[in-house]
Amino acid sequence: MSLDNDVIEKKVYETYAQIATESIMIRNVKEAANILEKNYKLIVNENIIRLVYASFLNGRPVLFEGPPGTGKTEIGEALLELWSGKKGFLLPCSENYDEYKVIGDFHPLMAMKIGFTEESFVPRVLLAAMILDVGVLVDEIRRSSDEFQNLLLDIIDKRRIVVPELKRVFKSKGSGFQVILTSNPEDVAQNELSDAFLRRVIRIKFDYPDMETEKKIIRIRSFDRPSISEELINLILKTINKLRKSDILHKPGTDESVSWVKLAQSIAKLENEDVVKVRHVKEAATSLLSKRQEDEELIASVISDVFSEY
C-alpha cells in the first residue's frame, strides 16, 4: 500500500508530521553528550546515553526513575529526538487512558453515517509515532492503569499495532519508534508499577546532580548578566541540598535551583545592579521555593540558617 492511497497514513501525515519536525540524527554517545549540552543545555552523563542507546538498539523501552526536577522528561525527549532524527511525541499519562485515546478512535457522527471504516477513524499519538517512525515519551507512567501499561508494553514488544475494527495491523518500519517512560517512585499518591511491568523495561535511575554538575547546569541555563558569584551559587545549592534532605513535600529539583538564580538575576536587573547581591537571592527564594503553606516555615529556617552570616 503506498502513501497516496492509504487513508490512515495520509491522515497521520496531515495532522502529526508538523510536530515531528526533522532534525539531525546522532547515534554516537560522545557526540550526543556534546550536542545535548550545546543545543539542549542539558548535562547528561555518557553512561545514561549509552544505556539508552543500547536499549534502543534492542528495541527495549527505557524507564527513567527519579525524583521530580531531575531532568527525566526533558532529557528523555531530547534523546528520542537525537536517536530518530525527528522530534518525538510526549504522552502525559492519565488514569483513564485506553487504546482509543492513544491509538485511535472513531469519529462518532461519521461512524454512525458510514460505519467503522478507515474514513471515520481518527489516529492518535501512539499510532502516529509508529507510522512516522519517531519516539514517544510516556510521562509519569504511574498515573496510568495496569491495563494501559500492559497494552503499551505489548505494542513495544511486538512493534506493531492492531486495530481490530479495521482488520489492520500497523508495523513499525524503522528503528526511530522507541519509548521512554518516566516515573517518580517516591510519589506515594500514585500507583505502584507491577513487577511484571518492571521486568520488561530497562530501568535507569535519576538522582539530583552533584554540586559541580548542578553548578554547570546553572551556568549554562542562567543569564550572563547581571553576574552572580560562585559564592552565592554555593549558598543557593547548600540551601537546596538541605531542603532535598528535609521532609518538605515538594523537594526542589534542578529546575528550582536554575529558576532561583535566574529570578535573583532579574531582581538585580530591575534594581540596575551589575552584580547579584545576597538580598536579591534572599528575595527570590521566598517567592520561589515554597509550594505549600506548611513548608514555608521550614524553608525560611533553612534559608536563614544557611545565610546567617550574610
Binding site: 554517545v29 542507546y53 543500547a54 536499549s55 538498539l57 534492542n58 527495549r60 530497562i202
Partner: peptide, 9 residues
Amino acid sequence: KIFESYLLL
C-alpha cells in the same frame, strides 16, 4: 544483547 550493543556503540 545490551552488552554487545555497548561494544558496538
